[in-house]
């Protein structure tokens, strides 16, 4: 048995919702988010509460677009970067749906999509939501320095994305089952297609001994490369079959390392190979150094930009490798190395 999870009845993406902050609203993907708040506060007093509010808003948008009541959710899979994942628990409490808190560092969006799709395909749940977020200010406070502290960031540092995104996944219609076919709409429907999660390859923890907290891209690149290599080794598909192959938040340096590692292993992913952290900001004008990072990075790029391209029929098949750096401020101070993980999800509208 192979390691790729091939969903028997691939769950469909019913709808998505995204909210983002000021920097994201000025970046290369401006206009792809449902709501942007230039103050980054979302009407709340603290940045931690703002992040919770972002999750609430993102899921609200997704449900609203699908014209769906929160009662329809059989479960929510959600996570963020804050201690004890309070961004998710406080933000999603109001939906009173069964809740699973996840921590996959910045890979949480992909981790949520895998688990959500498994829960739906296994038949235990009909409809689930996956939500993830990061907030630059809450992350800076927790992982680095106070916001107003005057310091310089090294060139390899990345900028934590202020964004939250929600995906609502549901059981696909089973041909011949009248009751099931009445189900909810699907992204891409207007173009006669339906975006589905067709495959997944859960990542393994890879630790290559990087200890520099400001070079997360290098810490995560080997994990992403390992997952992509295993995928293409086992899969019948070739890189050319995909319109986009995206890593989560390796940034410019990490993505280049990942590409080189794969080429070294004899796998060239070609032009469609990019990174959500590279796509989200304008490197030349936004002073974001190596690009974006955080749970909200891959989540908002996928739910905002990639889903929009699916909807317009511009793309048919996408691979996401959600990347995460598994560390804490204490582990870094204790000199432990930063391990990475890369969770792969295939989204297909064929």
């Amino acid at each position: 048995m192979g390691k790729i999870v091939r969903f028997k009845n691939p769950p469909k993406v019913i709808s998505v919702g995204t909210v983002a902050g000021a920097k994201e609203s000025e970046g290369r993907l401006k206009g792809y988010f449902d709501l942007c708040d230039k103050s980054d506060k979302f009407g709340k007093k603290t940045f931690e509460q703002s992040e919770s509010e972002m999750q609430r808003l993102a899921l609200n948008f997704a449900l609203k677009k699908a014209d769906m009541s929160p009662n329809r959710l059989d479960a929510i899979f959600a996570g963020d970067l804050m201690n004890q994942c309070t961004g998710s628990s406080y933000g999603l409490a109001a939906f009173s749906a069964p809740y699973f808190g996840l921590y996959g560092a910045c890979s949480t969006a992909a981790e949520g999509l895998i688990l959500g799709a498994m829960a739906v395909d296994s038949g235990y749940f009909d409809t689930v939501a996956t939500v993830s977020s990061s907030h630059n200010s809450s992350a800076e406070r927790q992982f680095r320095f106070p916001l107003e502290y005057g310091s310089q960031r090294p060139p390899t540092a990345q900028w934590t994305v202020t964004a939250a995104a929600a995906f609502v996944l549901g059981k696909s219609a089973i041909a011949g089952n009248a009751e099931n076919e009445k189900g909810h709409s699907c992204i891409g429907e207007k173009n006669g297609v339906c975006v589905k999660i067709t495959e997944a390859l859960p990542g393994r923890i890879v630790d290559k001994g990087i200890t520099d907290q400001s070079n997360m891209g290098a810490a995560m690149a080997p994990a992403a490369a390992a997952t992509l290599y295993s995928y293409f080794k086992e899969s019948d598909s070739s890189p050319d079959d995909f319109d986009m192959i995206l890593t989560g938040d390796l940034g410019y340096d990490g993505h280049a390392i990942c590409r080189d590692l794969l080429i070294g292993m004899g796998l060239d992913l070609g032009k469609g190979f990019s990174d959500c952290g590279i796509l989200i900001y304008d490197r030349n004008t936004q002073d974001t150094h190596c690009g974006g990072s955080g749970c909200g990075c891959s989540a908002s790029v996928m739910a905002g930009f990639v889903m929009d391209r699916f909807k317009k029929g511009e793309i048919k098949d996408v691979l996401l490798v959600g990347t995460g750096a598994l560390m804490s401020p204490s582990s870094v101070l204790q000199g432990l190395s930063i391990a990475g993980i890369g969770h792969l999800v295939r989204l297909s509208a064929r």
Binding site: P155, K208, G209, I210, T211, P222, D253
Partner: peptide
Amino acid sequence: MTNAQYKKYADERAATSP
């Protein structure tokens, strides 16, 4: 690539501060 080799490789290609 061993961990030490990878660390060296990553450090070498990392952009340095001006």
